[in-house]
Write a protein that binds this DNA or RNA. Structure first.
Length: 334
DNA sequence: GATCCACAGGAATCCTCGGGGT
DNA sequence: ACCCCGAGGATTCCTGTGGATC
């Protein structure tokens, strides 16, 4: 049934993208000075998950690379490379300058210094999930690197801009900001149709099943492709040639928990314990939470550390906190 | 309204780990 | 073998906030 499994993978970038031509041309206009040896501004893409931000950023840079003789680029996921060191390391890695860097042994800001000395083709760096960066100052430093242009990506504008300090804010506040909205139903259907066309046998998926997937994905293309991928896998396991509606419905919770699993995998044992307590208890106050946490683990961390963990869980969209000071409570994200 | 309390979260400091240099 | 250094996590200390109580 499957003719090309690659197109069902989340990181697949298609040859052509649909429904985002305005965003693509806005971004490529911003980057255009590269072609004339100028220095483009950094830009900022924001919008809900699955709205195509990462895909469009990669796609646009890829297009540009096909038209420009020489252009380096690197994709950095700030969720994974959240510290200053890791971010800079990843960026240097994109221009093969890490061959002799051994973790902490390098002097302070040697990495930045090396980037400053970089004097080759223009370098475009995509910083995805930039709100997860621990140290926003690295953005300021990167901003001052010659030949380097950043494409910043985040869910919400204010998550990034509210955390910037004065200097950086004044530099970035006028950068092009490109807003991404959720896909509507027909757009999602046509995205699914393309993937099915590229990756599945022609009769594997009917129009009404595509609409069902799109409906469950609620505007989120990543979710839609996840559902399609899972439904496809389940269908082929049952040695059936066609993806049926009931299997799609079955694939929905699986796709959702797959996405959640990806984030909870990144939690430490202590964070996981806190998360479990919160999911078990529906809603819980900070004090009760700490008590239960202490009774569950051997050597509990301090209250302050727990608060750090909680704000991390909140940032990861795993829990929601309601209330400000006294009487604040935590509940699982629905 | 003054006081107390529970809590949030920023800043400074401490602790630990891993790797290099001597 | 020893010391030193930087990074990053955890802890300590602190200030601020808003509800509860008198």
């Amino acid at each position: 049934m499957i003719t090309n499994a690659r197109v069902l993978q989340p990181e697949f970038i298609p040859q052509e993208v649909k429904h985002r031509s305005a965003e693509v041309s806005h971004l490529s206009d911003t980057l255009r000075p590269i072609m004339t040896e100028g220095r483009p501004e950094s830009s900022f893409l924001y919008g809900p998950s699955g709205a195509g931000k990462t895909c469009i950023a990669k796609y646009t840079v890829k297009q540009l690379r096909e038209n420009v003789v020489d252009l380096n680029y690197q994709y950095v996921n700030c969720w994974e490379d959240y510290s200053r060191f890791k971010t800079l390391y990843r960026i240097l890695d994109g221009i093969n300058e890490t061959w002799d860097i051994h973790r902490q042994s390098t002097p302070k800001d040697e990495l930045l210094e090396r980037l400053r000395q970089y004097d080759d083709a223009h370098y475009v760096v995509i910083l995805d999930e930039v709100d997860q960066l621990q140290d926003k100052k690295v953005l300021y430093d990167l901003h001052r690197i010659p030949h380097l242009t950043m494409i910043l990506i985040a869910n919400r504008e204010e998550d990034v801009f509210s955390l910037l300090d004065e200097r950086l804010y004044s530099r970035l506040q006028n950068c092009p900001r490109i807003r991404f909205n959720n896909y509507d139903l027909t757009e999602l259907v046509s995205i699914i149709k393309d993937r099915a066309r590229w990756g599945l046998r022609p009769d594997a998926l009917t129009q009404s099943e595509m609409e069902l997937i799109a409906d469950h994905a609620a505007g989120d293309a990543r979710a839609a492709i996840g559902i399609l991928r899972n439904a496809t896998r389940m269908t082929s396991q049952r040695e059936c040639g066609q993806i049926k509606a009931d299997l799609i419905r079955e694939a929905v919770p699986e796709a959702n928990s797959e996405i959640r699993q990806k984030t909870t995998d990144k939690l430490t044992d202590h964070q996981q314990t806190l998360y479990d307590i919160i999911t078990d208890s529906e809603e819980i106050s900070g004090g009760d939470l700490y008590e239960r946490y202490c009774s569950k683990v051997d050597s509990p961390k301090t209250r302050r550390t727990m608060r750090n963990y909680l704000s991390k869980l909140e940032q990861y969209n795993l829990v929601v906190a309601s209330g400000n000071t006294k009487g604040r409570s935590y509940s699982p994200q629905t």
